[in-house]
Design a protein around this nucleic acid. Sequence first.
RNA 1: GGCGCGUUCGUCUAGAGGCCUAGGACACCGCCCUUUCAAGGCGGAGAUCGCGGGUUCGAAUCCCGCACGCGCUACCA
Length: 489
Amino acid sequence: MTGPVRTRFAPSPTGELHIGGLRTALFQWAFVQANGGELILRIEDTDQSRYVEGSVENIYEGLRWLGIEWAEGPDVGGPHGPYTQSERLEKYHAVADELRARGRAYRCFCTSERLAQLRKDQQKDGLAPGYDGRCRAVDPGEADERARSEPSVLRFRMDRTGVTTFPDLIRGEVTFQNSLQDDFVILKTDGFPTYHLAMLVDDHDMEITHVIRAEEWLASGPRHLQLYEAMDWPAPHFAHLPLLVDRDGRKLSKRFGDVAALDYRDRGYLPEAMLNFLAFLGWSLDDHTTHITADEFARVFTLDRVVPNPAFFDVERLDALNGHHIRALTPAAWCEHVGEWLDRDLPADIPRPLGADLVAALAPLLQERVTRLDELAGLSRFIFGELPDYPADLLTERIKGDTELATRTLDAAIPAVEAVAPDDWGLEPVEAALRGLQDTLDLKLRKFVSVLYVATMGAPRGIPLFDSVALLGRDEALARLRGARAKLA
RNA sequence: GGCGCGUUCGUCUAGAGGCCUAGGACACCGCCCUUUCAAGGCGGAGAUCGCGGGUUCGAAUCCCGCACGCGCUACCA
């Protein structure tokens, strides 16, 4: 096969873009990038009953989130359009007619009841289920006649002799016994093609050289190969990617929970982290690389380094990667994220716009402390609004319930902070004052500092204390310390 | 049931006959750093390479058998 490498991402608009689909698209994209080829986006909406409004837009958005771009597609057009299958019906019918003319397809009038019964019987007898070819015998002329008044489908006449073998770029030669194949439907009663026919026609028209898809398609390989043969069209290369599975080793499904790609974005995962995570699910660069950027992935990706075995979608690793990429962000880029997510997640009663200076001061303190962007508001809330009420117990939670120590700490801290003149207020003086408590109390800071964390931010953990107190301002800081002291009284 | 694919630390993987007393990363544990929490640094534990046979001087790597898992088995893709 000569000419540029062309592959396609062909999702069905049946809902939100599936995370497994995004992974497939990512590999396809990297493959064409690395080989100087083109990615085509095609919408496979041949099952009208499963169409969900808004799906197509969701697919575009999901792909763009990771920076995946396509050269041809429904939105950008291209020389092989249209790129939506429901708009290509006449093309499928033309090929269906040709297949019939070649004696490779025939009308079938079997009812779904008969088919169901057939399947049941076959199952009972331990036979491979499949259409028994009953309508193969109907005379074509008679079939046309009947088709005028009777619903029918078009079936492909499979060659049931010998074997079908094809090289899968990831697992090598794969062989199937043709005797186990059956005559599958290529045109449904409603006149729409099934996946098999539509794929054949479109991939040929669109000059697809590499079909890269998930492993669930492997078993239908013989159908596709025979379809190509029947039309005397050269078959593309096939590569079946390993499945993404859940903890039980099953194909990722709604049961697993988070399968919608964009939900990850909405929960605060960075696209660079998701890309990095997905890239190493079934693929590796060498024996030590664990971090990768989109540019590098697109440069070094090869199909021969894709493994054939399924990969567990481990969110724990995604989290680790997200933390890594958050920390790798430049201060400016990070600050922008913080502003955006705080604006999104902070309670509505906090006035907007949020103070830019405060956000800028806060951002660096948060960068090493979150793994997801949706944690930002929780850690920052205390500084923007009123301190939420907390139980007195919390003050002594990390000092083994030592109320006496908590009392002494606050009694020492209040005058120490008061001693910082309003005009001098700032990080340095606050830190000096608070560190001075070590002498006053004759204790290491770490022994009592948790009391002050709770007093100022309502939790024994959070962003650094000195910064928090300084950012809060003298009056508010004092008020909170006094409030805490009152809880112990 | 049938067919296909798969099987290396808990997880993702490196490994294409001797470099493997099996490497890396996440998670886990410990230590250091330290104003909490993190982050970071250092170290540890963790895989008889699914099992059984072969081939070979030598096998995670080649061959055969078995087991298990998953996928497909629709007028869904």
